[in-house]
Computed example of a mutant assay.
Amino acid sequence: MTRTAEGDLRDCLEDAFWSRHSNPKSGWSRTLTGPLLLLALYRRSWRLFVFAVAFTALNPVLFGRPDPEAESWMKRAVEAERWWLAEGNATMNLGWPNVLNVANVPTFCYALLAAYRRQPVRATVALAASMGLKFGWIELIARQYDESQA
């Protein structure tokens, strides 16, 4: 396979991934994986944990391409994330709004730890904070994406 063919294949696969992931069903169902992971750790259910991890990995390709004419916040969010990454903004640049996405990591890790330690209030509060940070980051990059398209 030539280098060009490999690049074409990679571009094709990447486009298929992002276009399917932009289906709002993909994005919204993916928000359930955090609570599922916490529940699995809290209950020590390794089957549920494996299911949640597998679902997280497979989720972006489980759903078909969305209607190109349909608009939704989640579709716009995924398109913005793709644009954000393509623009090179995913580096460890701690500028705004990346600070929200970076802060999300230890917050979610703490939620996992609290669930494992069977501290449901702490796990729930940390999960809510983590989701708030993620949704805040998504909304901010979606606004920047909209400005770039205007």
Rank of each mutant, 00 (worst) to 15 (best):
R143D: 12
D67V: 06
T107K: 03
A128G: 15
A129D: 01
M131R: 04
R30F: 15
R43H: 05
S130R: 00
G7Y: 06
V78N: 07
P24D: 12
C109F: 14
L41Y: 01
S22D: 13
L140R: 14
N93V: 05
L62H: 07
A114I: 00
G132S: 11
W46A: 00
L127M: 13
D8M: 05
F51H: 06
A128C: 13
A128Y: 03
A5V: 06
L100T: 08
G64P: 15
Y110K: 02
Q149F: 03
S72P: 08
A150V: 01
P68G: 10
S19M: 08
L48N: 00
A86G: 09
A150I: 00
S22K: 02
G34V: 08
L9R: 10
K75N: 07
H21I: 00
R47K: 01
D67A: 11
A115V: 03
S72R: 05
D8E: 11
L36F: 14
Y42C: 01
L48W: 04
G88N: 06
N23W: 08
W84E: 04
K134D: 11
W96M: 05
P24T: 11
M74F: 11
R82E: 05
N59V: 05
Q149D: 02
L85N: 10
V78S: 06
N98K: 10
M1E: 10
F55T: 04
F55H: 01
S148R: 09
R118G: 00
P60I: 03
L32D: 01
A129I: 14
D146N: 06
F55A: 06
K75E: 07
W84H: 07
S22H: 08
A126F: 10
P120A: 03
F108K: 07
V102R: 10
T31F: 12
F135A: 12
P66M: 09
W137M: 04
F108E: 06
L32T: 13
S26A: 15
F17Y: 15
D15W: 09
T33L: 12
K25F: 14
L58Y: 06
R143Y: 07
L36R: 02
R143I: 10
P24A: 11
E139C: 08
R143T: 04
G7N: 11
S26Y: 09
E6W: 07
R10P: 04
I141D: 08
D11P: 02
G7W: 09
T107G: 02
E14N: 13
S19P: 01
K25H: 12
A16R: 13
L127V: 06
L58W: 07
R143P: 03
E69S: 13
E79W: 06
L38Q: 00
E147K: 08
T107D: 03
P60W: 05
F108A: 13
L41M: 03
L133V: 11
D8V: 05
P24F: 10
R47W: 09
N89W: 14
S130L: 00
E139A: 15
E71H: 14
K134A: 13
M1S: 13
R10E: 04
G64W: 13
L140T: 10
T124P: 01
R76M: 12
A86W: 03
I141Q: 05
F63W: 15
G95M: 10
A57F: 14
K134P: 00
V99P: 03
V99L: 14
L140H: 11
A150E: 05
L100W: 11
Y110H: 11
M74V: 10
H21A: 15
K25N: 12
P24G: 13
V53K: 03
F49N: 01
R43F: 00
